[in-house]
Simulated scan of single mutants.
Amino acid sequence: MERFDVIDTCVRMAWHADQRQWAELAEVFADKVTLDYTSLDGGEPVTLTPAQIIDGWQAVLGGYAATQHLLGYPLVALDGDTASCTAPFQATHLKSDDTSWTLGGTYRFELARTDDSWRITAVVMIAGWNDGVR
């Protein structure tokens, strides 16, 4: 059951972002989250609050007419009150002019157990390929 709860938390991150359900999205994150998108954009990983993540994602995702982030075949490792979940992903970003940008690769999530749920403490996105114009 714990393995399912970890996977559900990670899937809900993608679902709520795509559905623009910002309040629900905040509930999947710990108080501080390390985001590492350096494989796509360079730079350094950042540590943000859920509100900071949502502000950034609203700005980025708001530039697209729609997005769809799909996670496949998750591998979960449980270690007491921490867990990791690694899954391949494909993310399609549809623009208002009907062009799209699709990105594929791997997500690695780190999670911590709270009193009532699992919360994401880190997200590492490893870009593998992309198609279209960002």
Rank of each mutant, 00 (worst) to 15 (best):
T102I: 04
D81I: 02
R3L: 14
I7G: 09
Q21V: 09
T102S: 02
T121V: 15
G128C: 15
F109A: 07
V123Y: 09
A51V: 08
V133S: 15
R108S: 09
S84H: 04
T106P: 06
C85H: 05
A77V: 15
V123N: 00
T106F: 02
T121H: 07
Y107H: 08
V6D: 08
E27Q: 14
L70R: 01
G132K: 13
A122V: 09
W57E: 11
H93N: 00
L71N: 08
A122C: 12
R20H: 12
L40N: 09
E27N: 11
H69P: 03
A26T: 02
V33K: 05
A30E: 12
V76D: 05
D97M: 07
G63E: 14
D41Y: 13
D116Y: 12
L61N: 05
D81F: 05
C85Q: 01
L61G: 04
A122Q: 10
A51P: 06
V76C: 08
W15M: 04
T86D: 02
S39C: 12
C85I: 07
F109H: 06
P74Y: 00
P45I: 12
D79I: 11
R119I: 07
D5F: 14
L103R: 06
D5P: 01
L71V: 09
W101C: 00
A77H: 11
T47Y: 14
V133L: 15
Q90G: 01
T9I: 04
R3Y: 10
L70Y: 04
M13K: 02
Y64P: 06
D116C: 13
A26M: 13
T99M: 02
F29P: 00
D36C: 13
T102G: 07
Y64A: 04
A122E: 00
M1G: 15
L103Q: 06
S84R: 01
F89E: 07
T92Y: 01
D18C: 01
T121Y: 09
T34P: 01
I120T: 10
T9L: 13
G105W: 08
A112K: 11
R119H: 11
H16D: 02
R3M: 14
L70F: 06
V133N: 14
E2M: 14
A122L: 09
S100F: 11
R113F: 12
P74D: 02
G63M: 11
T9F: 08
G105R: 00
K95I: 03
V33M: 01
L71W: 03
W129A: 15
C10R: 03
T49I: 15
W129T: 11
D116W: 09
I120A: 01
A26I: 04
V124H: 10
D116N: 15
C10G: 10
T92W: 05
V6P: 04
S117V: 10
S39H: 10
A26F: 01
N130R: 15
P88V: 00
G104L: 03
M125G: 09
V6I: 13
F109D: 06
N130E: 15
T121C: 12
M1C: 13
R108H: 05
D55I: 01
L111T: 04
I53A: 05
A14M: 06
R20F: 04
A30L: 14
M125D: 05
R3N: 13
G43I: 06
E110W: 00
T99S: 14
I7C: 13
Y64C: 00
A122N: 08
V60F: 05
W101N: 03
V46P: 01
A14N: 11
G104H: 00
A26Y: 10
D36L: 11
L48G: 10
T82I: 05
W15Y: 13
